[in-house]
């Protein structure tokens, strides 16, 4: 998806500016698209060696299973590019789902969709203001947000004992129906996210902010506003993902979403976005999400007989390996 990183190949560009050296381009590509490369490699190897992997049904279940949670990683990409972090998305995701189920039960489609968006957006706004205006550390602010959103969820679901069910005849159900809707929604949002990041002033401001906040301020960028908005965006996306997921499950599951923020961060980092901010891409995040999903799928098939502890172990080792390769590539690039 949205690979807008390099577009100078056209005739106009060829006329004037000197082009990058071949080596410069290759190493740059390796760092930015390392996640994509590893993804392709793993998919090819798995298709050859793992029975039943290369199957339309299997692919579809991987994509559908991760379509909505991938939106958490999308929002996280924006936040991490500014040099921040959003730990609240897992809780907000769960809260969004419960609110959507409750809303669709009492007010149909509109309420079922708008209520979670409004609440999650508001949580994001408060977090953003605390980070940008009160200058608190994003880690602490969103950790508080994680606890708050989870607490709110417990409060409206009687300590998690009440599970609101989406009415089967509600138009809301259609949002999670089948394979096409979830996959399509995710693809469209990722493409829009890519355009937002690389082709708008807001997106450029995110990079500038993460690259050097002081310089961004002195260059006259709207630092406070951008910082606030990025948390609103992340929160809203998490709420939307929760709502859509509830439509798919046809209920507001209360114990969902624990630790999803960490999976999202892992996907973003695997996708080549620097945790220190200032560099990253939506395409990379997409690759990161898919890579983690494929690994999860493979572990589920081959290691399930050893239980979930084995899959967690393998996941941990794999994440460390990917990040190691990533950093090595990034360093090699910096040296060249």
């Amino acid at each position: 998806m949205t690979t807008t990183a390099s577009t100078p190949g056209d005739a106009a560009a060829a006329a004037s500016p000197p082009t990058e050296s071949r080596r410069e381009r290759l190493t740059g590509l390796a760092q930015q698209q390392g996640g994509v490369a590893v993804l392709v490699l793993v998919v090819v190897l798995a298709s050859v060696f793992s029975h039943g992997f290369a199957d339309t049904g299997n692919f579809q279940s991987i994509l559908v299973g991760n379509a909505y949670t991938s939106l958490l990683a999308l929002g996280m990409t924006f936040v991490i590019i500014t040099g921040g972090i959003d730990l609240s998305v897992g809780s907000v995701f769960a809260l969004g789902g419960v609110l959507a189920a409750w809303g669709s039960l009492h007010g149909g489609l509109a309420v079922g969709l708008l209520l979670p968006l409004a609440v999650s957006g508001a949580i994001g706004l408060i977090q953003g203001l605390l980070v940008s205006r009160a200058r608190l550390a994003p880690f602490i602010v969103t950790l508080a947000g994680l606890l708050f959103a989870r607490g709110l969820l417990q409060a409206i679901s009687d300590e998690g004992s009440t599970t609101y069910l989406v009415p089967r005849d509600s138009a809301f159900v259609a949002l999670g129906h089948g394979a096409l809707v979830p996959i399509g929604t995710a693809v469209v949002l990722f493409v829009l996210g890519g355009v937002l990041l690389t082709r708008t002033r807001f997106g450029q401001a995110l990079f500038a902010l993460g690259g050097s906040e002081n310089a961004a301020m002195l260059m006259g960028l709207p630092v406070t506003r951008t910082k606030t908005l990025v948390y609103v965006l992340s929160g809203t996306l998490a709420g939307l993902a929760g709502a859509l997921n509830a439509a798919r499950l046809q209920s507001g599951v209360t114990n969902i979403g624990v630790g999803y923020e960490l999976t999202a961060i892992a996907a973003v980092v695997i996708g080549g976005t620097l945790l220190t901010g200032g560099a990253g891409s939506v395409a990379g995040t997409a690759a990161g999400v898919l890579l983690l999903a494929v690994i999860q799928n493979l572990i589920g098939v081959h290691l399930s007989k050893y239980g979930s502890s084995a899959s967690d172990l393998a996941n941990g080792v794999f994440l460390a390996l990917v990040v190691l390769v990533q950093t090595t590539l990034a360093r090699a690039r910096r040296l060249s």
């Binding site: 560009a13 004037s16 082709r199 002033r201 450029q204």
Partner: peptide, 21 residues
């Protein structure tokens, strides 16, 4: 930065590169 040439809010990066050069 912050004054990129754009059309409908979308940055015209080819034009930006040309002008920058």
């Amino acid at each position: 930065l912050n004054r990129e040439p754009s059309r409908f809010g979308v940055i015209d990066s080819a034009r930006m590169k040309r002008e920058a050069y």
